[in-house]
Design a protein around this nucleic acid. Sequence first.
DNA 1: CTCGTAGTACGAGGGATGTCAAACTACGAT
DNA 2: ATCGTAGTTTGACATCCCTCGTACTACGAG
Lengths: 118, 118
Amino acid sequence: MAETVAPGRVLPHPDREEIRLETVLHALSDPVRLRIVRELSTAADELSCSRFDLPVTKSTTTHHFRVLRESGVIRQTYRGTAKMSGLRRDDLDELFPGLLDALLAAAAGQHARLGEEA
Amino acid sequence: MAETVAPGRVLPHPDREEIRLETVLHALSDPVRLRIVRELSTAADELSCSRFDLPVTKSTTTHHFRVLRESGVIRQTYRGTAKMSGLRRDDLDELFPGLLDALLAAAAGQHARLGEEA
DNA sequence: CTCGTAGTACGAGGGATGTCAAACTACGAT
DNA sequence: ATCGTAGTTTGACATCCCTCGTACTACGAG
């Protein structure tokens, strides 16, 4: 029963109006989190946490995903044992027009410029 | 001698290629610093630190301006006893096209939306 | 039911950060 | 030379942040 979505566990997300620019910028100022966001932006739809190959442990990964969610950058839902994550493009574009695209372009540009290191 | 610029004291600035997106975002994730940058963006030319009416002490102000300078967001030079600050628009636009404008627009939008509090 | 996998919770450690006060330096004006 | 203004430096303090390991919970498969 219950569709593909909606398990017992619920994840708190800030409403769109609650999203603050400073908090978003702080969330994206960490290399690991910026990398997560970049990968999410290139994915067609949502990804599970375990699809990322990050240079940190599981608990640290959980921490970073939570920071991203609580800042309003990503949306997360459970699907079985997996936790799916996706960018909150709609809300961010509405709140800060052009910002997400500029940020992603900047991140991509820096990545291309500096090579594979970061 | 010596023109209106160039005193004995020199301030270290990162080269354009050394500016990192994560560091810039971190610099802008502080409310006080974001406010400084917003004020600088509306000014015709450079401003001295004392032109800002910030809710922190002088030493904290010094700290915030240094973070902004070392992250590559602003450029600072001494002119007499005053320290002039201005946005590094040219370098930032070259490095991250559209980012600064999107950030400033986002900050202005949030300010308008939330009123005078922050 | 039992097991394995995905992710969480709870400290804890170590470093960075924002804040301040107090003493200090640099420069211009008188 | 003296003073005042602008900004710096240093040290301290509280807090936050990233990281980890270990123990834990939730769900699906067999």
